[in-house]
Amino acid sequence: MNARDAILARVREALTVPGPGPHQRAGEMAGHGAAPHSAPLPLGNLPVLALEAARPWLPDGGATPEERLALLADNLGKLKAVFHRVPTIHAAQDLLFSIARERDWKRVAWHAHPLVEPILSGIPCATHRVDGAAAVTADPTTDSSLRKDALEACDAGITGCDALVAQTGSILVSSASCGGRSLSVLPPVHVVVAVPEQIVATLADAFDALRERHGSSFPSMLSFITGPSRTGDIERILVLGAHGPKELFVILVEDL
């Protein structure tokens, strides 16, 4: 028997002995006196999906666009990300250029995206596009180090996003729509450009947005970015910029 069949056989054998049902105890704690193990549920036939059971109890994501925007701004602040709301793409440009000058950026990396391209045009430093035709069709044997080194040497990565999640202050990026896997994590600064329509309430809504956009064939990587990279490994003291970006900017362009 090969390993796959052997493991599956063990698992099936183990599951022939019925076990207790799920532990549903919140009611018990509130004094309803439920039995410690509720009666076994028929498998494959949950009375309610976990997400539906949890939805009313998880942290709030906001009911209206205004609430969602306020929550998002609050969460991003707590996460030590920098959140800017600007009225137009020109204002976004001014903002980005001033950040670039202030930090003396030499080169920024970007990908083709309807928000990223206009905001970058005229930036006072060199630019490096990660998703040119050459990169996408590159020969797997020669592509790697040169392009990795080029991106590693950039001062910032500028990307779009798939959604902004009010509930957690997260930015959803994907390998298909945000310049691959490394643009949003290798350079020391990550700048995200987005529009208010991209703000969703909860993680579950972000999954819905993904399904809407990509159908059932998702990009090979989807990542929820929640604040700049961090670690607490040394004496549990928070340090930003462990391996990913030390700084994270979110620029929300309110009126295109």
């Binding site: 390998s175 691959g180 896997r181 993680l203 998702f218 990587m221 989807l222 990542s223």
Partner: peptide, 26 residues
Amino acid sequence: GTGQPLTCYNTLYGGPRAAGECDGPR
């Protein structure tokens, strides 16, 4: 685990680099 709303990176991988993507493992 750590008292965060969500950890910094929660990432889903469905396979190696897909057609049309510019980086990622083969």
